[in-house]
Write a protein that binds this DNA or RNA. Sequence first.
RNA 1: GCCGUCGUAGCUCAGUCGGUAGAGCGUCCGCCUGUUAAGCGGAAGGUCAACGGUUCGAGCCCGUUCGACGGCGCCA
Length: 429
Amino acid sequence: MQSVKQVLSGEMLGKPVAVRGWVYRIRSSGSIIFAIIRDSTGIVQVTVKKGAVPEPDFEAAASSGIESSVTVEGTLAEDKRAPGGYEVRATGFTVVGPSEPFPITEYQSTELLLDQRHLWIRSREQTAVMKIKDSLLRGARNWFHENDYVEVTPPIITGVSAEDSTTLFQLKYFDRFAYLSQSAQFYLESLIYSCERVWALTPSFRAEKSRTPRHLTEFWHLEMEAAWVDNEGNMKVQEELLSAMLSSATDECAAELRHLGRNPAMLSKISPPFERMSYSEAMDELQKKGCDVSWGSDLGAVEERELTKDKEQPVFVVNYPKELKPFYMKENPDDARTYKNSDLLAPEGYGEIIGGSERETDNALLIERLRDVGENMENYQWYLDLRKYGSVPHSGFGLGLERTVTWICKLEHIRDAIPFPRTIARVYP
RNA sequence: GCCGUCGUAGCUCAGUCGGUAGAGCGUCCGCCUGUUAAGCGGAAGGUCAACGGUUCGAGCCCGUUCGACGGCGCCA
């Protein structure tokens, strides 16, 4: 048995080959049938001629529809007319699992594709995205390992929110309520006192009623936290990590990137250091471009697009006003109106993919800020404890994996960066 | 939460001024030994999202509801 990739390499030219997979396209011209077979490595044309295979095999080929699973034996031949330049001339054709008429044809609406998601993920586009995502994750995991980070496993069920501003999914937890995690940050912070450098990949949940091409209610969150690291060091980790992830994808998945319309050479050019711009500088630039913003207003989708639409590399925006960010960030000693934090914006208008900061170590400040936003202090007791026993300067960030994939794969919507997207209107399939 | 668009055959859509429901693809049958979303001939296939209203008559006009999609806000 050969993979389609092996077959298309041509190394078996003139020899017997066997492939198995699914019918991707099939056409008949009477006594010759052209079947395009797909497996996880690619697609290849098979010709089935009457007389060249046993009659039952010919009938099986003639009656097999799109997505039937099949095994084919034959001889590998070179043929300019075949896509890929090679074809398998069948001597045997067996249907393993017949297929009813496939619901997805060449004309597809967004709604149909989302309703039939369990079938649409067989598409070449979706397969390419999954492979690229896999490669990005491998690149990240390798980078963390090489840089002495410990991969840890924080809880998904929690009793407290990491960010007061966001909405939580509540669940019944025996005789009380608990919540699905929206960030592992507090748990990672508590692990730096022993492991020093930690990271985790976990699902995060946001119950916000966001209807945009950049939001999922369930997404994969790649988070890192490190002791003895300041905000500048934090940004260095981000740019090195992201570059390592990009190298992995361009090395392993160049063909998949091209299939999605993304030129891998453009991604290869991205390397540290990334451009840094203060929030105040961003505001000045936006005002010059005619945006209706003033110091203190948040960067919305329009503003992020305006700042990055002509960039080829990601851009850090640093030192946001405190009002726009959560309570746990460290005050900027050079401008007390702002925090020592950074958002990393992807180029081409794709927007924020990472948010990070140096963390506040002064419990008095943390308590004051929590009081200001009306939080129940009991929920934060264990978090405040962390500052009582050997507190150290530390920083961390969270990367939205699907947002990163959306940018790298040049997708129009984040739902295509995950096989089964969970959005405000979708939990099926 | 706010603004907008849409809902007609399995799928993608057209449907004019309110007057007998249409096409392409898919499916089924027939023809075809080099197709590339193959081609040719034929057939089957409809609660026009739901409910209510106007009208002699509603897919079309009005109202309500439901669903989906696009954009904004919030965030990664």
